[in-house]
Amino acid sequence: MIKVVNLKKIYQDNGVPVKALDNINLDFEKREFTVIAGPSGSGKTTLLNLIGALDLPTEGKVFFEGEDLSLKSKSELAELRLYKLGFVFQAFNLIPVLTALENVEFTMILMGVPEEERHERAYAILEELKIAELANKRPNEMSGGQQQRVAVARAIVTNPSVVLADEPTANLDSDTGTQLMNLMEKLNRDKNITFIFSSHDPVVIERGRRHIILRDGKVVSDTSK
């Protein structure tokens, strides 16, 4: 469903070109649970950002369900992110002035879901993820693990086909991290949502069913269990 062809990303760092991704070719199928691993600076974040249409490649293309993202307008890309993709970042995922429930509702507001349905769906997701008691709390009243769960809830409430998660467990202790992985795995299994996430942590990496390892912007290994 996602195809990456000859993808290259070169950043300009004060005029010095930095090759973050070098000729990447990858295919992602539906229902994958894929981890992207590799040392710091190997290009994990860059790759996830390009797949998620958060940034433009220097060369090469990303196809999402057969469509060439380079041909889409800014606003079409925003629609794509809204309807098809879910994002979980390392930190600061949530809007600080909104409660957990409102954060989860937010994407549905952008989609124009009517208020009642929005409310119900947001509650249902919070309950499903066993964080209903957080509904009326603001991010600064939650722990890091709780915030990440709410972020996952927000990412999946719109029934996206893919959730992209860049080091979602990096700021969590290992127990909380494991719980988050359990949650993601369950959603992957029960709801057929494709997960592509990155990590440094061997324990987390172990949970992926497909392992893509990057080094210096190149894929050095791609194995599936």
Binding site: G52, S75, A78, F87, F92, I95, T107
Partner: peptide
Amino acid sequence: INEFGVLKAIGMHNRK
């Protein structure tokens, strides 16, 4: 700025 980044990432249009 990072908050706006998240808002954009989750699909908020520039107009909004």
